[in-house]
Structures are given as structure tokens and as C-alpha cells.
């Protein structure tokens, strides 16, 4: 911007401030500072940057969808590890994992940084009571984050899905009061089904503050050896961001899963 334009803009802003008060006009940077939303970082800086709240929101529901080997479970595990820790990096909070399909791998969780002593693994049977259990756990106000792995296990059962839909409103209030972050892992739906609200997770999506879709894009090899893959996280819904920004991510398999954004 030229100096003249900048001066004109500044004088206009000053005039507005004098007439309507300092809250009337603010720069984008100032607005970002004020609107600090309680959140938990995922550990993927590029993903955190597009969500609009610097991570996944506390006190709200987030939907994370993606096909198998898209990186969604890695994001979920890193998110659990991050949720357990305070700002010094010490384990200070308890989290829960609803392992609905009974395939949680403790070895993998540890490699992602999750402290198993502060992780409650919940393996309910496929009954409507499982949804009540989620609400009751959140209501205890002792959990900082809960991951549901994965939502289709509930939605394929008519009785459970009906109970879930009926509980969503109450669940949101419980999350808000407890300041607990809820992350539900889901399979992706074709855009046209989402558009027409024909997908099973539509009602959950409607109640989610954030919806992210993960997609694996490319295998990463070095000298013919697979070393990881590149994925793309796309924001399909956010209470704080307009549009559908996306973020590239790289997930590597070098013994421990390392997360770093592509640059």
C-alpha cells in the first residue's frame, strides 16, 4: 500500500474511532488477538492455522473425516497427547478414547506422545447406553478431551444413532460447561450427499463447531523405501472461518510418527 493511501486509511480509521469508539474498526491482527478461543493444538501447525481457533475447540464438537490411511487417527492421537499436557508440557489432564471397534494400539498411542496413565479407554457394546455413557463421562468435568473412534460404528445401528441424535443438544451443553473437547472420527461422504444432507453423519455435522476432512495425496518414498505420506486437511466447516481453506501435512513412519507440516 502506498504511503498516501496508508495515511488516508489511518485518518479515516481515526475519525471512525473518535465518532463510534475504538471497537468500531479493528485490524485483522487485533481481532485475532481478542478472539482467543479456548483450544487444544493438534500438533500439526498448518492444520491448527486454518481452523480459526488455533487447534480444536474446547467445549465443542469437532468432526474429523477421512478414508483409511488418511492420517485422521494420527491427528486424533496427537490431539489426545496435546490435550493431556499443560503449557509446560507436563501431563496435567485426563482424556478418554471411545475405542468402539476395539482396535486401539497402545504402542502407537505411546509413540504419538499419549501418556497411558492419563488415558481412559472406553469400549462399550453397541447399545444406546453407550451414548448416555459419553454424556455422563463429560458431565463429570474431569476430562479435557474425548475422541470417538469411530462414529460410523454408532451410526450403522439404528437404535444407537437415534439416541445419539436425540442427545446432541444436551451433549453440546455438557461439553460447554465442562470445557471438554470432543473429536469424532468419521468416514468421508461424497460432497453431493453432504449437500443434500443425505449422509448419516449430517446431524452430527450440523452440531459440530468444526468439520475437517483428511485426504491422503501421495506416498513419500526415499530410495524406493516408503517413508510416509503427504495428506491434505480441508476445512469443511468452522464457526470462526469463512471459506474452505486447506493445509498440507506430512506424516512420516520413522520409528516414531513424526508430524510436521509441508513447507
Amino acid at each position: 500500500m502506498s504511503a498516501t493511501k496508508r495515511r488516508r486509511l489511518e485518518s479515516a480509521v481515526t475519525a471512525i474511532h473518535e465518532r463510534y469508539g475504538p471497537q468500531a474498526v479493528r485490524t485483522g491482527a487485533e481481532f485475532r488477538q481478542v478472539a482467543a478461543i479456548p483450544h487444544i493444538a493438534t500438533g500439526f501447525a498448518a492444520l491448527d492455522a486454518i481452523t480459526g481457533c488455533q487447534g480444536l475447540p474446547m467445549g465443542a464438537l469437532t468432526l474429523l473425516s477421512g478414508r483409511t490411511t488418511s492420517g485422521k487417527l494420527t491427528v486424533a492421537c496427537k490431539f489426545l497427547a496435546s490435550a493431556q499436557r499443560d503449557q509446560r508440557g507436563d501431563v496435567a489432564h485426563t482424556v478418554a478414547l471411545f475405542d468402539l471397534n476395539r482396535t486401539a494400539d497402545p504402542d502407537y498411542l505411546v509413540r504419538c506422545g499419549v501418556d497411558l496413565d492419563a488415558l481412559l479407554v472406553v469400549r462399550p457394546s453397541l447399545q444406546p447406553q453407550a451414548v448416555d455413557l459419553l454424556g455422563d463421562l463429560v458431565q463429570q468435568r474431569r476430562l479435557r478431551a474425548v475422541v470417538i473412534d469411530c462414529l460410523p460404528d454408532w451410526l450403522t445401528n439404528r437404535a444407537v444413532s437415534r439416541r445419539l441424535y436425540a442427545s446432541l443438544g444436551r451433549l453440546q451443553t455438557q461439553l460447554r460447561v465442562a470445557q471438554c473437547a470432543l473429536l469424532m472420527l468419521d468416514d468421508p461422504s461424497p460432497p453431493w450427499r453432504r449437500w443434500l444432507n443425505l449422509d448419516k453423519s449430517g446431524r452430527v455435522r450440523w452440531n459440530a463447531a468444526l468439520h475437517i476432512e483428511m485426504r491422503r495425496e501421495q506416498w513419500l518414498t526415499e530410495s524406493g523405501v516408503l517413508k510416509g505420506y503427504r495428506a491434505q486437511a480441508r476445512l469443511l466447516k468452522s464457526q470462526w472461518v469463512y471459506g474452505f481453506p486447506s493445509a498440507p501435512m506430512e506424516i512420516r513412519f520413522n520409528g516414531t510418527v513424526k508430524a510436521r507440516e509441508t513447507w
Partner: peptide, 20 residues
């Protein structure tokens, strides 16, 4: 260092879903 290293057979792999 190879991306997937097999120490003593299988150690070193980072996977997520595990069927016991």
C-alpha cells in the same frame, strides 16, 4: 535410515489400528 526399519523382525513400525 530406511523409513520402515525392521529390528528383530517387526519393531519400529508405526501403525494405528491393531487387531489382537
Amino acid at each position: 535410515m530406511p523409513a520402515i526399519r525392521c529390528r528383530n523382525g517387526a519393531a519400529g513400525l508405526s501403525m494405528s489400528r491393531l487387531w489382537l
